[in-house]
Design a protein around this nucleic acid. Structure first.
Lengths: 216, 216
DNA sequence: ACTATCCGGAGACACCCACTCCACTTAGAG
DNA sequence: CTCTAAGTGGAGTGGGTGTCTCCGGATAGT
């Protein structure tokens, strides 16, 4: 009945210790496995029983909310930085790169953005993020670097595609996504005399094939 | 014990009729839902019991093999056509477009190529496909249209990314993938003075958001 | 030393899927 | 028409996954 740390009586010392352990474990497990990870796995990783998790957080949603407000704020901060970059195109490139990198390091963040059920608690934060994205986009178009027929949903989609390639190639070729993001950036810019060198080698066919049969 | 139609005694008329119904239903269900679809669903769709499916096809793998040899052959034929196109770049574009279109119409094909466990029975066909892809790629590079730092795994990956966007946007915006394939094609070509017009409008932000919360 | 608080983790429950079994039905040969 | 091998449906089995509850026992902190 007592989820909140600040109001009402403080938790007993051991309970508070466990609460922190659970949050840390959840951060790790959600980052590695995405939001599909089971709470049992988190409990095990935290070294506590399942019951303990559920006494502290009424359900999975609550745990997710407790964790990802911060991660979303990081993302928004990155977007703000991009919107203030002296070179709008460079800002956009950096934003895409760091947003994707964040989502690779934390698959939970990716799931939250693109595949999570009710994100009611994040509505506001997401709206802000959207506005900043729109600005980044508009500035790069105005500077003449970003082709004018793209909009913020295109940026989001490019991000989605990139994280999906990353998920596909992980952990065989951890930087592969940079190659395809590079390719798409060459498609996004207005004009180009020659290909921008791609920042990562492609997969060789054997590895590619191996990745196509998941050992499920 | 008798799976094969040609050898040994022919099936009883009703059995043969059911076999065809099962194949037709499987084609439809796999196309719509992908290879994850359960055989119970196929049985129901065919109007037969689950047992009937399993008497005709020893397991799911057998059913998949019976169906997808043909689909793969279609894909290979398309690739051959691309390899023989008078304009290598146009051939490549057409190949990507039709390969993706085929995988959208038949999610089972997509799963077979990129996400299915043991595809032992298809090894040979896949090897041929690979060779043809390599040729399409080489010809377009030789013609100076395709940037020389890409190879056949890049084409495969572009295809994968495109089908994933399509899966994401389906059925809200069925042609959306063409937009992002267009974008990537602009990244794949060697040089370009101005953006090639994109063949499909982007999602509006509301639809995009809706697609991000799957109602699961 | 005593009690409110907290703990662990087995297990209830609710899904999902591949695949089996067998009492019943039926095609089709004679 | 009769008779039986072939065929059938679908409940059931077993194995998997995940969320969340329950309660006998441990323990912090007064």
């Amino acid at each position: 009945m007592n989820t909140d740390t600040t109001t009402s009586r403080p938790l007993r010392a051991d309970a508070e210790r466990n609460r922190r352990r659970i949050l840390a474990a959840a951060r790790e497990v959600f980052a590695r496995r995405g939001l599909d990870a089971g709470l049992d796995e988190i409990a095990k990783h935290a070294g506590v029983g399942t019951g303990t998790v559920y006494r502290r957080f009424p359900d999975k949603k609550a745990l997710v909310e407790a964790l990802f407000t911060e991660r979303l704020a990081d993302l928004t901060a990155t977007a703000h930085r991009a919107a203030g970059h002296p070179d709008p195109w460079a800002g956009l490139v950096e934003l895409l790169e760091s947003a994707v990198a964040m989502q690779i390091e934390d698959r939970g963040l990716k799931d939250l953005l693109f595949a999570y059920g009710d994100k009611g608690a994040f509505r506001e934060q997401l709206a802000v993020l959207q506005e900043v994205l729109r600005e980044v986009c508009a500035r790069a178009v105005a500077a003449g670097d970003l082709r004018p027929d793209v909009d913020l949903t295109d940026l989001a989609t490019v991000q989605l595609m990139t994280t999906q390639v990353a998920a596909f190639a992980e952990p065989e070729s951890p930087g592969l996504w940079r190659r395809y993001l590079g390719l798409m950036l060459d498609g996004l810019c207005t004009r180009r005399e020659s290909p921008t060198p791609l920042p990562h080698p492609p997969l060789d066919t054997l590895t590619f094939e191996r990745l196509c049969h998941p050992p499920r």
